[in-house]
Write a protein that binds this DNA or RNA. Sequence first.
DNA 1: CTCGGAGTGTATGGCGCCATACAGTTGGGT
DNA 2: ACCCAACTGTATGGCGCCATACACTCCGAG
Lengths: 156, 156
Amino acid sequence: MRSAAEPRSSVAAYGDADQLEALVVVAARELRSAFDRGLVELDLNMSEAGALANLAAHGPLTQTDLARRLHIGRASAGTLVDALQARGIVRRVADPEDRRVWRVTLSVDGARMAARFDHRHTEIRNALHLGMSGRDRKLLAELLRQLIDNATRFEG
Amino acid sequence: MRSAAEPRSSVAAYGDADQLEALVVVAARELRSAFDRGLVELDLNMSEAGALANLAAHGPLTQTDLARRLHIGRASAGTLVDALQARGIVRRVADPEDRRVWRVTLSVDGARMAARFDHRHTEIRNALHLGMSGRDRKLLAELLRQLIDNATRFEG
DNA sequence: CTCGGAGTGTATGGCGCCATACAGTTGGGT
DNA sequence: ACCCAACTGTATGGCGCCATACACTCCGAG
């Protein structure tokens, strides 16, 4: 057991607040939480909103396509669609040319909701980008992409 | 139903890969996964490693202190300590001056493990920081902090 | 035509974290 | 001296995602 006044050792830095990895994790949590707060009137969470937006913009989508766009697995996309379908926001239409897939499409209510969401979404994002220039955001995205790339390639 | 070739609407951007919020979430997931892969020999996950490092560096800690350092809730810190204690890495010592709290300390095995972890940890981080200068990392941390700040302050 | 590899959605179980509610303890204000 | 707000750790239930395994369907090589 060493002195408590010992200067920062390398091992100490791991969980510290200024630690890059920890910052990313915390940021993800806070972003999700902020989106949830901002979308509470529409009763949507961040992922449901993402699905809604993608369906509004890119027409009927297969669940696998949806999963790819949202960066989640197919199983998660399935339960996501389940929830939206149960609320009448989305419909599953059988694809006549491929009996394996569902064509997930917005219902009329869903399209109306997507329009309302669109406006709210830009409000939220503007609030989250306070104090950051467009250049900052671009740079941040670039660095995050690098980090993701390194993490994905990393093999034990 | 509109044309599939329709140009990107603002609503479309939400779940896209170059979307800042999505990037942060994905980065957090991939970082955690990379750490798990890198620490598999020590049978530690990212949070357990963080607890280990903090205990090694900052002496005996209260569970609340540990939670604060790891940016998690007290309940999560409790289950974290449960797991480490079950493996003999950590001990809960009653605080003689405050019967509410546990003083969580590393066991002898835990201290040995922390030493091994220290080396492995810097290896992993170096791999994750490939292609990023020190200035890049500092900037990334700064921008993430700004994002966290905005998200935390955001009220529906 | 058949057969096997590849793709699609689904079921199940696990993980890490949260929010909430709770009982025990402390410490200060009156 | 007492009481009550504040704090500690814990129990419970929920959430969002993953990995794995599965049945079904497609499609191309032989």
